[in-house]
Design a protein around this nucleic acid. Structure first.
Lengths: 182, 182
DNA sequence: ACCATAACTGTCCGATCGGTCAGTAATGGG
DNA sequence: CCCATTACTGACCGATCGGACAGTTATGGT
């Protein structure tokens, strides 16, 4: 036994990140992480004060950069703000794709729920329709964006009534897809 | 005691829907639901075979309509498909806003995580920047859409490398916001 | 060679979870 | 009035969770 002096800590972080992204934070137990790493559950709690400490250490870099973006946008106004926010946010989400996935990772357990039909299959076909049956990168990405855009917006706490929200969603979604409303 | 013959079943469904939307399915225990309803935990399991049965009954109508949309889109191709998919999907998400929220409800517990700074505040300011400091409905909705679009797309299983994904995300996001790339 | 310290583990613990079950209280048709 | 059926409950159960802790093994400076 006896690893070469705590490479274990890094292994724990890496395995935890993979498991959190795949099954969500709540959906991953300390036992799961220990099994993946190949050590005891007690070892995890020797290197980290708690399960939440592992999550915090994983998400802290992303949080710090988000705060940086926030600070950089603070001084800008109007068009400047919007045109800086877009690449800033995109780069952030791309650089921390796995962390983004961790935040969303508790969902798949639900979307695969039986009696809702095979949601993944239906969603695949919906994406294909949104992309206009096209396999071009631009169309496929735009279709994914519309899927997420409508989903998140409808789930948000926007207090807008449906009849006001609907036309804006449709207009902006069509614009995202490169289809000006006609 | 003795309620007027099982209005309880409806109360359970309503309370469960609220709690699932607020704290997620995993984040809501049978005890939580029983407390909200004002009955015993055993009563829940008298009216419903299991916790999952409650969730299934809540999500089934949405699942059925999603399947209908899927069927309606099956015959269409190209532009027809895209232009029918957008209002169809939007209407579905709007009609089942609470159900949509349930699917996303496991996230808030993470985004409020300490040591990531106050994510909700930062996100509010990011939305303001994306909207170009505008309070117009169109701009606010589009900002929410971009937030969700980039988030979900980056968390998706698209196997596109970052350097291909980035320009598409930025271009489509700007288009969503009504800002043609110049 | 020695030993203080760091690394690691097996075992136990209390809490909480979803779920079972025997038993009680109310209801409504005969 | 009676009683089968429905509605409901308290108590209990096994599993699993995150975590505590005493004890064991390896390491590296002296």
């Amino acid at each position: 036994m006896a690893r070469p002096a705590s490479a274990l800590r890094g292994l724990i972080l890496e395995s935890a990140a993979q498991l959190f992204a795949a099954h969500g934070y709540e959906g991953t137990s300390l036992h799961d992480i220990a099994s993946a790493v190949g050590c005891s559950k007690a070892s995890l709690l020797y290197h980290f004060a708690s399960k939440e400490t592992i999550l915090t250490e994983l998400l802290t870099p992303a949080g710090a950069e988000l705060a940086e973006l926030d600070a950089a946008l603070a001084g800008l106004d109007g068009d400047e703000a919007a045109e800086a926010a877009v690449p800033g946010y995109v780069d952030l989400a791309l650089r921390f794709r796995r962390e983004t996935k961790i935040l969303l990772a508790d969902i798949p357990g639900m979307t695969c729920h039986p009696a809702l039909g095979s949601i993944p299959d239906i969603v695949d076909r919906l994406l294909d329709a949104l992309a206009g049956r096209s396999a071009d990168t631009a169309d496929v990405v735009a279709a994914h964006m519309v899927l997420g855009a409508v989903f998140v917006t409808c789930a948000s706490d926007l207090e807008l009534p449906d009849q006001d929200l609907r036309p804006e969603l449709i207009r902006s979604a069509l614009r995202t897809l490169g289809r000006e409303p006609g």
